[in-house]
Structures are given as structure tokens and as C-alpha cells.
Amino acid sequence: MHADHTRPVLAVFDFDGTLTDRHTFWRYMRFIVGTRPFWLRIIPLLPKMLSVILGITPLMQARLAFIACYLGGLSVEQEREHARYFISEQLPLWLRPEALRRLKWHQSMGHVTALVSNSPENYLIPWGQAVGFDYVCGTRLATARNKLTGGISGANCVDGEKVRRLKGCVGNLEDFYIYAYGDSSGDEALLSVANSPFYRNWY
């Protein structure tokens, strides 16, 4: 499908499973606390995980329990340092070369690019800026008194929230010809506003 060249082009990418070949947030939490403590702390969370599998507890609600368990009380400075190392040591191993090529193609064409993901902005923003995204939106981890509270600020950046956050960055979406790239049900709202939606493919 060819872009409408009477409008500027906006290319929007999901992160986990789209630009990467796996989910990154739980691996980020494991990276912070260490492998053994991570699996030990998960034991009390197993009933909640089962509840998600059985369809009793919403996934995003369970996700909050993980954030509280692994990140609550961590200082902002400590978490920022963890993010810096995670970006340099872990993320490069999981990036999809074909998806990065697609991003670079959009950038070479002068298209506006946005990264919109449910992963936390704590590592999305520095990584996204490093690879040249114009806008980066993610879930915001809440802080108070220079520590992570273990909660989030605002809504999880998923489903319709992805579209709302994108509008907050670029304004009226109808002003753009939109390419959108996603891989899950959490991207459906974003893909639905695209002129050229790509679900689990980059071509």
C-alpha cells in the first residue's frame, strides 16, 4: 500500500514482540533484582498468575502486583542506572533486525516516527531517543520522594491508551498517513487508526 504523499507520513511502532523478539519488562525486573531473587519472589504471585490464566484477574491488574513486588522502594537513581545497563547489555540481543531496517527506512524517507509501548518509559525513552525516534510513549512508573512507589502514573499504555498518547504527541491523526506496526491484541486500537497496518510483519 502506497502512502498518500499529500500528507506527512507517521510510522508508529510497538516495542515488545515488534521491535524485539520477546517481552522485555519482566526481564527488566529480573535484571534489576537478580535471577534467583526474582524467582523466589514470584512464588507468592503464583495464585495471581493462575487467576490471569483462568480469566479471573485482568492481566494489567496482575502486572501491577509484579511492579509493586520487584520495583517498589527502588530509588530513582538506582533504577536509572539499571536502565542504562539494560539498554546497553540486554536489549541489543533481542532486537529484530528486519524491524530495525524498517524503522531506518522510514527515517531515511523523512517520516515522523513514534514508539508507543506498554513497557516503561524508564528504558523506552533513552533507547528510543538513541535510535532516533521522534516521539516515545510508554507506561510511566510512579515515583514519590525520589523512590519508585511500585505503582504506575496514569494508565497502562495499551489498547486505546496507545492512541490517546499518540494524539498527545502529534495532534490530529487524520493529518498524517499512518503506518503502524504491532504484534498483539494490545495494538488493535493503534492498528485500527493506521492507513497501512502491519500485524506481525514488517513488509
Rank of each mutant, 00 (worst) to 15 (best):
R102T: 01
A144E: 15
D187Q: 08
D21E: 13
K162E: 15
G55S: 02
M109T: 10
I87T: 10
A142Y: 04
R36A: 15
D187C: 00
L91C: 10
P197W: 12
R80Q: 15
V12M: 08
N201A: 02
K48Q: 12
P47I: 06
D16V: 02
G154A: 04
E81P: 01
Y203E: 13
E79V: 08
F133W: 05
R102N: 00
R102G: 00
T20A: 12
S88L: 12
G128N: 08
N118W: 09
G17N: 06
S88M: 09
T113M: 06
R27S: 06
I152N: 09
G17S: 06
F86S: 09
V12I: 07
G132N: 07
D134F: 02
S119C: 06
I67D: 13
S51N: 09
G128Q: 12
L190S: 03
R101D: 15
L40N: 05
E161R: 01
Y28P: 04
P47C: 11
T149E: 14
N122I: 14
P92L: 09
M49C: 10
F176G: 03
F25Y: 12
M29K: 01
I152W: 09
I178M: 11
L40S: 09
T139F: 05
Q90C: 13
E188H: 03
L103V: 00
I152M: 09
E98F: 02
